[in-house]
Structure formats: C-alpha cells, structure tokens
Design a protein around this nucleic acid. Sequence first.
DNA 1: CCGATATCAGTTTAACTGAGATAA
DNA 2: CTTATCTCAGTTAAACTGATATCG
Lengths: 153, 153
Amino acid sequence: MPQQHSTRPPAGVPSMMYLIKQVELAAKGHLDQLVAPFGVTGVQYTALTVLARNPGMTSARLARNSFVRIQSMAQTIAGLEERGWIVREADPSSRRQRRISLTESGRALIHSLQEPLEALEHDMFADFEGEEVEAFAEYLQRLRLRLGGSHPH
Amino acid sequence: MPQQHSTRPPAGVPSMMYLIKQVELAAKGHLDQLVAPFGVTGVQYTALTVLARNPGMTSARLARNSFVRIQSMAQTIAGLEERGWIVREADPSSRRQRRISLTESGRALIHSLQEPLEALEHDMFADFEGEEVEAFAEYLQRLRLRLGGSHPH
DNA sequence: CCGATATCAGTTTAACTGAGATAA
DNA sequence: CTTATCTCAGTTAAACTGATATCG
C-alpha cells in the first residue's frame, strides 16, 4: 500500500553505502596525495604491496583477489611494469601464466613509503581506541567476504 | 573452488585503506546492479536520497557535503535533472543559487527502490549483531569527519 | 575587489565490455 | 571441447583541473 506522500524523510536508506563511499573517497584523497610525489597512484601502490606480500602471483589471481576484472587489473599491472617496479616472467610449468615479482626499484618504493603511510593510518585512527581499530578491521573483513561472494565473471 | 587462504602475514601497510576500497567496490557493484534497471547509477541515486532528506539544497552545498568538487557534483546533478527526477529553481533571495527539489518522478523512484535497498543493506549485515552495525556506522562517521576535515578547495 | 555559485570545456583514473589468441 | 590466462581495443562513470561569468 502506497503511503501518502508524507514529509517523513525516507530514512537513511543507503546510508551505510553512502558512508562507506565517502570514507573511501576521503581516504583515497589522502593516500593519493601522499604517494603522488613518487609517481604512483594509490591503486597502483596498494596493488604493489599485495604483490610484495604474495610473490609469484599472476595478474588474474590478483584481479580475483581485488574484485576487479582481469582486464582492469592488467591495466594496473601494465603501469607498474612500465615504471619498472615489477617484472613478469614466464612460468616454465605454465607457459600461459606470467608470474609477477617486484624489482629492487619496487621494493625501494614500498620501503620509502612505508613509514609515511603508517603515519597516515595512525592519524586516521587517532581517536580510535586500540580495540576499536581491530573491531573496525574485522567488520570490514566480514563485509569483504560477504559482498565479494557474488562477483561477476 | 579457488578459495585460497593467502600465504600468511596479513599485516600490510595500507591494509585498512585497501580493505575500505574493496568493501566500497563490492558494495557499489551490488548497488549499481540493483538500481541500474531504473536507469540510475548508484552515485546518482545516493545523491537523490540526500536531496530528498534536505530539500532546497544547492549543488555546491551538496558537493561540500559529499567531499567532491562543485563541478563534479554539478555533473551528477545535471544527470538527475535531465532524467526529470529533480528541478532547480531560482531562489528569489539569491539569484545566483539554484535550489534543488525532487519531482514526483524523483520521489517515486526513491519510493520504488527503498524496500529493495533496505533488503540489500540487511543482507550485507546479515551476520552482524545489531549493536555491531551501529558500532560500524559510528566508526565510519568518525572517519568521515576526521578525513573530511582536509578537503581541497 | 573578493568570495561563492554556477557553467563550459577538457582531462584522468580506474573501472567496465567485447573479441580473440593460446595454453592446460 | 572447455576453460583460464593474457592481450587488444573501445567505453563508461565519476572524479579531477582550469577558465569564465555573475551575483552578493
């Protein structure tokens, strides 16, 4: 039954998604600002850190891990390769796949940015209690798993 | 099947921002999928709901509220106007500003999408306790305020 | 003159789709 | 034959910058 056009505000329907988007947008702004002087975007840098933690990854696997299409990730990877931060080598056991590894230059980039980025995150959560940061991270993890379940192909 | 657990140490520098981005990306996918049949994007729709809750807003004010540039919001607003979901009327007390209000069509759109969107959010947080959802929302609010403090001009 | 609003025009990031070659 | 990976090519959404006119 269609309610009358009450002046009642439609409550914050998409409030959570709106909030998440705004936080992401604001955080991206800070991240980009910090890493830009190094000639890297926030997306490129985060991809690089994932690759640093997972040596030998393929582009396709990284794409699935990040919930983007293979082609989207390929573009990001191409940028990293072009700048010389990564190399892709043919895997002898699977000539189709190209395994990614960081160059010295890539490792140096991560090293240079590690401290400023930790400071940025520390600042982001300056008014959080220690356990609140962990709780927030845990909520994000849960959402990531739940929402990521239904990714298109 | 390819449910892998990552090699090991989850610790990483930009882990929080990476998580936030992934959650936002996944949530956006679900939102867009839901609202697309109505000819609206997720960004357009969320802007519309903000306008519904704040009648008489200007584009510039909405932009500041959303942490985007005036020009970026103007583009979103233009899309909403083009589709007939909003109208912009000259304010007699300030001939520069154009106050935005929803049309019947715009209100109908919000009404049509309210229930499915509530269902989507409910589903997102299905494995959250009630107080956890509130805590998560509160964390996001805090981050929004803290990060939004340093928005460019 | 200055600041805020709005607009016009162009750019960039980073996602997307579709098509096709090749290897497992 | 099927599926996954990779690549090429083009598209879109949604942010951005810069410049300009006008109102208060």
